[in-house]
Design a binder for these strands. Structure first.
Length: 601
RNA sequence: GCGCCUGUAGCUCAACCGGAUAGAGCAACGGCCUUCUAAGCCGUAGGUUGCAGGUUCGAUUCCUGCCAGGCGUGCCA
């Protein structure tokens, strides 16, 4: 395994254990179910997990559960009758004001006033650690981006990068130990084409009139690399043109693959060991560029893993030997095949071609074995949607190697479609006119990029509206959320000319604040942790975006009708306490998204 | 053909492993700044959750079949 670069992950704030009200209520009902089981009234298979939810309608109290509805049939009771029995057995809790049975058998729980604002106290006590889960002890690896180092990242990679980074942050916040990895495809045919492209441009730059291959890399950066090659090696890599071009297959739409392959053969033959020079230069420069690009995008990796290291270390041969031993391989038409159909694949897959070269899939198999050998509990792959067809074979490989395929999760990210002025921005890799991630960042900024990329479910196409992303209005969700944060900071600045803020005084008088708005805010703040947990479990960071937007909306609503810096210091500090809690949650959430939380706008 | 994904307000999307009256934003219309940021807020209107069945006390959610759209289906990477 070769480590091409190691980047430390951000230091995480210490974990502070504190169960939310919802978790406490859930425990109470679980305890009641335990009693029913102990008495033999409820059987193991009939038992369902307790589900408590915050109510939407205040008439239903603050929390509600459907336990009675779920267990009524198994216990042979009417739901409301069971609900009554459960409520009678419910242990006392100092912050529960009342319990009611409603509708078909829901149990509604109403909290005391001071309990309602408990999340605000918790939030200010825990600060930047608020929302983080207790350590689960699970080691999770997230592999993402992993774009071929053959050119700059484009906007499609950007979405994978934003998604993977945010997902990793969320998994970490949910208490998992997370490592992130970029798989560098530094072996294989595409890399050879890259090296050849650079070398052909090099020859051109030295004055040889050549027809650049249709199948070569067209971007201007190839010429830049060729220029650098001249700078570092002068004409020392030049070879007689005739020896290079005499055996070339004719170029054309139909034959461009054969044409570029014949170039590669010719160059390797003519240059010998020196073939590595243009190849390595291109690889190093482009990979450095990608790393810088991602770094500026706020995306870093625990590790960069080299595909070539799998070849040189013999890992591919080892992995194939494992499959061979298990009877999963067979020879056919001179090639070596993996019997993936045994695990539900449409057809078997070649792992070693008739010319002796390993296929890309062979590297993938070795990489899977390598990952599992590192002892992760769960492996997450983030792929572009065009890799859809590979899921089955990769899972098949995991199974055939003897690993549990359920520990391997593949998440597809659909491409983003850019819109400018209501028109779709055309992108084409072939013509080299694709929009790079760097261009996108420069146009709309990192904050809007990171947010827009993850604001929709990853497996859905994303309409990325460039005009909206750069607009400074409430229509732009990034600005809307950041604005709420900045507004709070500005109010806190206003304290400078006033008697100093007293947190204890604020907390003491929290319950005396009038208005439903504060209760809504407190309830939402109390849901932050479970929102993070849900987003992490379902691998859906967009849930955090919606949450933050709603929290910001609640704050704006309250702020608009309530002055915070009032003369009554008890009221003033109570309100500022709420505002500070909102600010804290917004900051924590934005941080997970990789979006800044500005103090002024 | 086969496989996977998606159909929710005019548009872009939510809806917490099946819950109480399906929610936001945009677009439309009407209001709110001598007061901490109007980059904001309030209000009105907008729905047979693609269609038809099934399971359930209860279905946007689960199952089946249709309809429509997207993607995938190489000894490519």
């Amino acid at each position: 395994m070769s480590t091409l670069g190691i980047y430390g992950s951000a230091t995480l704030p210490p974990l502070i254990r504190r169960d939310t009200m919802k978790e406490q209520i859930t425990s109470l009902f679980e305890a009641v179910l335990d009693q029913l089981m102990a008495r033999g009234q409820l059987t193991e298979d009939a038992r369902r997990p307790v589900h408590v939810e915050a109510t939407r309608d205040p008439a239903h109290g603050d929390f509600a559960t459907n336990v009675a509805l779920l267990h009524a049939k198994a216990l042979g009771l009417a739901p409301r009758q069971l609900a009554e029995q459960l409520v009678n057995q419910l242990p006392n809790h100092p912050q529960i004001a009342g319990v009611e049975i409603a509708g078909p058998g829901f149990i509604n729980i109403r909290l005391k006033a001071d309990a309602l604002v408990q999340p605000i106290k918790d939030c200010l006590t825990q600060g930047s650690g608020y929302g983080r889960g207790e350590s689960t002890g699970r080691r999770v690896q997230v592999e993402y981006v992993s774009a071929n180092p053959t050119g700059p990242l484009h906007v499609g990679h950007g979405r994978g990068a934003a998604y993977g980074a945010t997902l990793s942050n969320l998994l970490s916040a949910a208490g998992h130990t997370v490592e992130t990895e970029y798989y560098v495809n530094d072996a294989g045919r595409q890399m050879s084409i890259l090296g050849a492209s650079v070398y052909i441009r090099y020859l051109e730059a030295l004055g040889h009139p050549l027809q650049f291959p249709l199948g070569g890399y067209q971007g201007a950066y190839i010429q830049d690399l060729a220029a650098e090659l001249i700078h570092t090696h002068g004409e020392s890599l030049e070879r007689p043109i005739a020896s290079l071009t005499s055996q070339l297959v004719a170029d054309g739409e139909e034959t461009k693959d054969a044409h570029i392959d014949s170039w590669i053969q010719a160059i390797k033959h003519a240059l010998g060991e020196d073939w590595r020079v243009p190849f390595d230069l291109a690889l190093t420069r482009i990979q450095d560029d990608i790393r810088d690009d991602l770094g500026e995008f706020g995306v870093t990796f625990s590790q960069w893993f080299s595909e070539a290291s799998l070849v040189s270390s013999g890992a591919i041969a080892d992995a194939l030997a494992t499959l061979e031993a298990g009877g999963h391989l067979y020879q056919h038409k001179g090639a070596l095949w993996f019997r993936s159909t045994a695990y539900g694949d449409d057809k078997d897959r070649v792992v070693q071609r008739d010319n002796g070269e390993y296929t890309y899939f062979a590297s993938d198999i070795a990489y899977i074995a390598n990952k599992f050998s590192r002892g992760y509990d769960e492996l997450i792959y983030v792929w572009g949607a065009d890799h859809h067809g590979y899921i089955t074979r990769v899972k098949a490989a995991a199974s055939a190697l003897g690993y549990d395929p359920d520990r391997l999760t593949i998440r597809l990210v659909q491409f983003a479609i850019l819109y400018r002025g209501g028109e779709r921005v055309q992108m084409s890799t072939r013509s080299g006119s694709f929009v790079t991630l760097r261009e996108l960042r420069e146009e709309v900024g990192v904050d809007a990029c990171r947010y827009f990329y993850v604001m929709r479910k990853a497996d859905q196409h994303l309409d990325f509206d460039l005009d909206l992303a750069t607009s400074q209005s409430k229509d732009n969700p990034v600005y809307y959320i950041q604005y709420a944060h900045a507004r709070i900071c500005r109010v806190l600045e206003g304290l400078q000319d006033q008697p100093s803020f007293d947190l204890t005084r604020g907390l003491t008088h929290l319950a005396s604040i009038e208005g439903q708005e504060v209760l809504d805010i407190a309830q939402q703040i109390g849901q932050f942790k479970e929102t993070l947990g849900r987003a992490a479990d379902s691998l859906e960071p967009h849930l955090l975006c919606y949450y933050l937007q709603e929290l910001a909306a609640s704050f704006h609503r309250w702020y608009n009708g309530t002055r915070l810096l009032v003369d009554d210091l008890a009221q003033r500090d109570a309100r500022l306490t709420v505002a500070q809690a909102v600010r804290q949650v917004l900051a924590n959430g934005l941080s997970l998204l990789g979006v800044s939380a500005p103090e002024a706008m």
